[in-house]
C-alpha cells in the first residue's frame, strides 16, 4: 500500500482517534495548552504594551521583543526548559508531560506578536484625535478607555491572531522534547518508522491551524467590520508574521 493509502487508513480508523494518547486525546491536550498559554500571554503582555503605548515610552523594547522572539528557536528554548531542574519534564495535570515547561515556552512566544502589535496599535492612533480628546478635557484615563483603546482594537486583534497561530505552532513543536500535544504522534510516528501515523497527525494539526486562523479572522472582522482586515505593511515588517 502506498503511503497515501496508509495515511488514509490511519485517519479513518476509529482506534487512531480514541483511547489514551489517541488523536482526540492529544488534540484536547494541545487545544487546552494553546488557550491557557494565550490567556497567560494576554494577561502579561497586554497591560504592559497598553501602558507603554499610552505613555509613549519603551518603543525600542516593544519593537525589539519581536526580533528577539524570531531569532530564538522555539525548540531550543523548550529544550533548555525541559533539561533544567525547574520546570523540567514533570507531568502537569491535563497539560501532559513537560506541561509546565511547554506552557512557559508557549506564553513567552505569544508575547512578541501581542506586545509589538498592541504597542504599535496605540501609537498609531492619530495625533489630531488625541489632541481633540485632550481639548475636550478628557483625563489620561478617559482618553485611554474612550479613544485610544477602541481605535487600537482592530490592530490589536491582528496581534492576537498572530499569537494564536504562533502558540499553536509552538505547542506542536513541544513534542520534539517529548512534550504533550498532537506533535507527539508525529514525532513518535517518525521515530518508529510509522510514517503514515506521523503524516496523518500532521494533517490534523494543519487542518486545526487553518480552522483557528479562519476563526480568528472572523472574530477580528466582528470587532471592526469596516476596517481593513490585513495587518498593515508597516506592522508586518516588524512582526513579520513570525511563526
Amino acid at each position: 500500500m502506498s503511503l497515501f493509502e496508509l495515511t488514509w487508513q490511519y485517519l479513518t480508523t476509529a482506534a487512531s482517534w480514541t483511547g489514551s494518547g489517541g488523536l482526540l486525546d492529544r488534540l484536547a491536550e494541545q487545544l487546552l495548552l494553546t488557550v491557557t498559554a494565550l490567556l497567560m500571554g494576554l494577561l502579561v503582555g497586554l497591560p504592559v504594551a497598553l501602558w507603554l503605548g499610552h505613555i509613549g515610552r519603551g518603543g525600542f523594547l516593544a519593537i525589539n521583543i519581536s526580533n528577539i522572539g524570531r531569532a530564538v528557536p522555539t525548540f531550543a528554548l523548550l529544550a533548555v526548559l525541559v533539561t533544567a531542574d525547574w520546570p523540567g519534564p514533570a507531568q502537569l495535570g491535563p497539560y501532559g508531560r513537560a506541561g509546565l515547561a511547554t506552557l512557559i515556552a508557549l506564553a513567552l512566544f505569544a508575547l512578541p506578536p501581542l506586545v509589538t502589535t498592541t504597542y504599535t496599535a496605540i501609537r498609531e492612533v492619530p495625533d489630531d484625535v488625541l489632541e481633540a480628546a485632550d481639548g475636550m478635557g478628557m483625563s489620561g484615563v478617559q482618553r485611554f478607555w474612550r479613544v485610544e483603546l477602541p481605535l487600537a482594537l482592530p490592530l490589536m486583534m491582528s496581534g492576537v491572531r498572530l499569537a494564536l497561530v504562533q502558540v499553536w505552532a509552538t505547542a506542536t513543536i513541544a513534542a520534539l522534547v517529548a512534550g504533550p500535544g498532537v506533535g507527539a504522534i508525529i514525532v513518535s510516528g517518525f521515530a518508529r518508522n510509522h510514517y503514515s501515523e506521523g503524516i496523518g497527525a500532521a494533517l490534523v494539526v494543519a487542518a486545526v491551524a487553518l480552522v483557528l486562523e479562519v476563526a480568528a479572522a472572523g472574530a477580528q472582522k466582528l470587532v471592526e467590520p469596516t476596517r481593513e482586515r490585513r495587518v498593515p505593511a508597516k506592522v508586518r515588517a516588524v512582526v513579520g508574521d513570525s511563526l
Partner: peptide
Amino acid sequence: STGLYTIPSLALLPLLVP
C-alpha cells in the same frame, strides 16, 4: 501563502515527506 504559513513547521515537514 498565508494559509501555508499558518501550518506549523512540525506538521508541514511530514506532509512533504511522501
